[in-house]
Amino acid sequence: MTGALIALRAILIREALRFVRQRSRFVAALVRPLVWLIVFAAGFRAALGLSITPPYQTYITYEIYIVPGLCGMIMLFNGMQSSLSLVYDREMGSMRLLLTSPLPRWWLLFCRLLASTTISILQVYTFLAVAAVYGIDMPIIGYLLVFPALIVAGLMLGALGLALSSAIKQLENFAGVMNFVIFPMFFLSSALYPLWKMAESSALLRDICAFNPFTHAVELIRFALYGQFNAAALGWTILAGFIFLGLALWGYDPARGVKKPRG
């Protein structure tokens, strides 16, 4: 095994151990979408009528509509959680250990990204399993085809978290990320309502939603869950992923420094 793969394995194991250790994080990651699914969706079921739009071939209930969006939500929150742990690592010093490894910095950051994506995917599958028990199941093929979609979406959202972590100077500033990144990204997307529904109230809001990369990640997941391929969503998600990754690599460029040290 090469040095790069040895490091990748070690980073994956470390992040997995950290996740297992933080049981409350796992419970929160699971409870959050379930609350939306069981409580929120039940309340809005009657209020929101949905027409037949791809990938659906029949009328669907609101609970069914929001499942892909909630998968995206898990990944979005996990990407931000990963960003938070990167900022924590930097404040605690262990980030320095990672960045002073003789391996290329881009590879080390990519390893972290891959580790956070892996954990996201495990959470999504757990959520889908609970949703199936609740009565919302997908075609069997959908559970398989969603895997590559989750990888792409997870990497894009993880890269966003990575880029943000390079810009956030202190842990205390993280609340701003919740207000200015997570909530707008989630609510200004197709996760909770289809874009045509949004257009009925505001064309501008619809355009913002259509521009939001999270919308495309959700649509990629939605189509994959029904065994279909959405090329536009894939293209947008990959493009956004590369942009965020580029920003992250720029943010962690040693020529820019990491953080002004003391002493």
Binding site: G3, A4, A7, A10, L17, S94, R96, L97, R262
Partner: peptide
């Protein structure tokens, strides 16, 4: 570094093996 960089929740051995892996040792 001046600031401790050990992962306090990992074992002593796991801290060392993580570092070794970052240097390509396994």
């Amino acid at each position: 570094f001046q600031q401790p960089t050990l992962d306090l929740d990992l074992t002593v051995h796991r801290n060392l093996s993580y570092f070794a892996a970052l240097h390509g040792l396994a």
